[in-house]
């Protein structure tokens, strides 16, 4: 970001956008998260990695408001959002994608993306039934925004009127990213954005994630198993294992951490 040709950093870049303190979540006897801390700086790309069942998705679900942690705090842009209902969080600037694609299958690509903006729109039921000047203006502005800022950016012009069920896996993932962008996020949570993609799709997605961060100043927190991508994209990596944070640092630091190697590969026993 320091080069002269780079766009100016977003206002307040570098300060803490998301801070998670001592977060604990249990399902019955299963401790999914045990006192996890996480700090994410504005304008960065942070990765959460860890073996299967480490609690990565649980952590993302807590940030998105889908799970209620029993202990700890989640502070987003200086505001404690731990108890804010999930449906109210998109309006605050939080958006997410899902590990298993969760698009609305009965809608076209365009309508799926428009739905992302739901929390930022205002048309009420009477305005909708009459499709009066207010509703019309809002829909036309939205269409314009979606076309310019999202469909064009993610190169899905040819798909806008297709139903999402007819798209390939890689394209569905891209439409899901498009829908998340329509939520106008300042913090974007991506749950395994490139899992199951071929090489070309992976490169496209990595490029989009970098562009989202660099050109729009959106902070990204992602879960990913592809270590090559994590190391290339991310500024910081947090490693979870059995619900606990076992390492946190730059990609290089984390790779060298003996605890991380142990968590992934197990300990060599002698004798």
């Amino acid at each position: 970001m320091e080069g002269g040709t780079e766009p100016a950093p977003a206002p307040g870049a570098g300060d803490v956008i998301l801070s998670i303190e001592r977060l604990s979540l249990a399902f019955g006897g299963v401790q999914a998260l045990a006192g996890v801390d996480l700090t994410v700086r504005r304008g960065s790309i942070a990765a959460i990695i860890g073996p299967n069942g480490a609690g990565k998705t649980s952590l993302l679900n807590c940030i998105a408001g889908f799970y209620r942690p029993q202990h700890g705090r989640i502070v987003f842009e200086g505001r404690d959002v731990t108890r804010v209902p999930a449906a109210r969080r998109p309006a605050l600037g939080l958006a997410r994608t899902f590990q298993n694609i969760a698009l609305f299958e009965g809608m076209t690509v365009l309508d799926n993306i428009k739905l992302g903006a739901h929390a930022h729109l205002e048309t009420g039921v009477f305005g909708a039934l009459a499709y009066g000047a207010g509703a019309r203006a809002e829909e036309e502005a939205l269409r314009d925004e979606v076309e310019r800022e999202i469909i064009d950016f993610l190169e899905i012009e040819h798909l806008r009127n297709r139903s999402v069920g007819s798209l390939s896996y890689g394209l569905q993932k891209r439409v899901e990213l498009a829908r998340a962008l329509a939520m106008r996020p300042r913090l974007l949570l991506l749950d395994e954005p490139i899992a199951g993609m071929n090489e070309e799709e992976t490169e496209d997605m990595a490029r989009f994630i970098l562009d989202i961060q660099e050109e729009r100043g959106v902070t990204v927190v992602l879960i990913e198993h592809d270590m090559g991508v994590v190391m290339d994209l991310c500024d910081r990596v947090t490693v979870l294992s059995f619900g606990e944070r076992i390492a946190d640092g730059t990609p290089a630091e984390v790779q060298a951490d003996p605890d991380v190697v142990t968590a992934y590969l197990g300990t060599a026993r002698v004798g």
Binding site: F66, R88, F104, A119
Partner: peptide
Amino acid sequence: DRDISAELMGI
């Protein structure tokens, strides 16, 4: 189509 993700979209 998907009530849980609808909720996370702010509905």
